[in-house]
Design a protein around this nucleic acid. Structure first.
Lengths: 217, 217
DNA sequence: CAAAAACTTGACTACTTGGTCAAAATGCAG
DNA sequence: CTGCATTTTGACCAAGTAGTCAAGTTTTTG
C-alpha cells in the first residue's frame, strides 16, 4: 500500500507480494506509454487501466492517485537516464569519454524514446513534479562533470568551451531524435526507421561536436 | 497572417471590424501564454477568457472551438519561426550564413520562448494538429536548404557533414534554452537571467558548431 | 436618431474524469 | 478445509469543462 511520502510516490512498502510486483509493473509500463504520448493531463486513468488490463478501481488500489503513478515513473526513469553522465571517467581520454557518452545517449534515445518524451514533457511544463530532484540530484552531478570538463580544457585536452553549454548541447541534440521524432520523420521520411539510421545519426553528431571541441592548434 | 487553410480554423471573414481585431489579438496572446505553459489539454477556455479579460461565451464568439485558437496560434507562429531558415543565402559565405542563422535562433529562443514551447509541445505529442503542415511546408524548405549546405560541402567550404543532421542539431540546441528553461535554470542558477547570458550562450554554441563544420585541412 | 448589425454575458447542459465504497472473489497460512 | 488477508470490481459521486442559448447591451449605419 502507498507509503505516502509527501511529494514522492516511490513507495516500497515493507512487504511486496508477488501479485503486487506484477501489477505495479503492468501499470507503470502502460502509464509510461500513455503519459509520454499524451502528457499528464491528456492521459486518463481509464486509459492506463485498460492498457494494463485491469479495472480502474483496481489500478487505484495500487496507486491511490494518478499523480503517484506519474511521479514514480519519473523517478524510476531519471536514475537510468542520468547514469551515462555519471559514468564519464575523469581519468579517461576526454574525446573518448565524450564519444562514449554521446553514443550512449543516442542509443538510449532510440531504444527508450518514451522515457525521453516523458521527461521532456515534464520539464517543458515547468517540471512541477521534479524541480526538487533537478536541484538536489541533477545539478550536483552536472556541476561535478562540468568541473571535469573544465579541467580537461585547462590541460589543453579540449578546445576552450563552456562545459555547461557543451553538456546542454549534447542533451539537446541526442534527445531531439526521441522528442521530435515526428518532425524528424516528416523531414527525413522513411530513412528514419531503416537499419543504420542510428549509426548515421551518431556519426553526424559525433563528427560535429567532437571536431568542435578538439583542441585547435 | 494565417490565410484560412481548409483544415485550419483561422477564418478571416471578408470583413474584419476594429473590435474583432482587438479581441482576436487579446485572445491569441492570452492563449499563447496558457497553451505554452499547460499544453492543449491542460488549458481551459475559462483560463484564456479570464486572461484575455472577457467572458467565456464572448471568447467563443470569436473562436467557436478551443481547437481553433490552438491551430490559429500554431500557424501564426510557425511562419515567423521558420523565416530565419528561409533567409539563409545560398550565395553567401557558408560560415557567415550559419552564424547568422544560429544567432537569430538563439535570440528568438530568448525573446519568444512561449512560441518555442508551444511548438515543442505539439511535436512532442505527435503533432496531431500540424503534421500536414510539416510535410507540406517544413519538409520542402528544409530539403531546399539541405541542398544548399550539401553544395557548400561539395565545394569544400564546409567539412563533410550531413546537412539534415546539422539542421537538427541547430534546432535542438537553440530551442533547448527555451524548451528546457527550467532545467537550464536549475543547473546554471542565477546566471540565466543576467545580462550577457544570451551572448555567452551564443558564443558557446557558435564556437562548437562552427568549429565542428569548418573545413578541415 | 432609429433600426440593424455586432457584440456580450448569465445561466445552463452534456459529458468527461478522478476518485470512493461496499461487497464479492481470490489467495494463502495453519 | 477454514478463516483471515489480499485483491478485484460494478456502481456511484462530485468536480471540472467544452460548448449552447436566449436575452441583453453597444456600435455602426443610413
Amino acid at each position: 500500500m502507498a507509503r505516502a511520502a509527501k511529494t514522492s510516490a516511490s513507495d516500497v512498502p515493507e512487504k511486496t507480494t508477488r501479485i503486487q510486483e506484477i501489477n505495479r509493473r503492468l501499470i507503470l509500463d502502460a502509464a509510461l506509454d500513455a503519459f509520454s504520448t499524451y502528457g499528464f493531463r491528456g492521459t486518463t486513468i481509464d486509459q492506463i487501466a485498460e492498457k494494463a488490463g485491469m479495472s480502474k478501481p483496481n489500478l487505484l488500489y495500487y496507486f491511490p492517485r494518478k499523480q503517484n503513478i506519474y511521479v514514480t515513473l519519473l523517478e524510476e526513469t531519471l536514475a537510468e537516464w542520468l547514469a551515462p553522465l555519471a559514468d564519464i571517467d575523469p581519468d579517461g581520454d576526454p574525446i573518448e569519454q565524450l564519444r562514449k557518452y554521446i553514443t550512449l545517449k543516442i542509443n538510449m534515445s532510440e531504444s527508450h524514446p518514451e522515457a525521453s518524451r516523458l521527461f521532456a514533457n515534464e520539464v517543458l511544463h515547468g517540471a512541477p513534479a521534479i524541480s526538487d530532484f533537478l536541484s538536489a540530484h541533477l545539478k550536483p552531478l552536472v556541476d561535478e562533470k562540468a568541473a571535469v570538463i573544465r579541467r580537461w580544457v585547462g590541460e589543453g585536452k579540449l578546445a576552450p568551451v563552456d562545459p555547461y553549454h557543451l553538456i546542454f548541447m549534447i542533451w539537446a541534440t541526442t534527445q531531439h531524435y526521441a522528442d521530435f521524432d515526428v518532425q524528424v520523420r516528416a523531414i527525413m521520411g522513411g530513412q528514419v526507421g531503416r537499419p543504420g539510421f542510428r549509426e548515421q545519426t551518431a556519426q553526424a553528431v559525433l563528427s560535429i561536436i567532437l571536431n568542435g571541441i578538439k583542441p585547435r592548434g
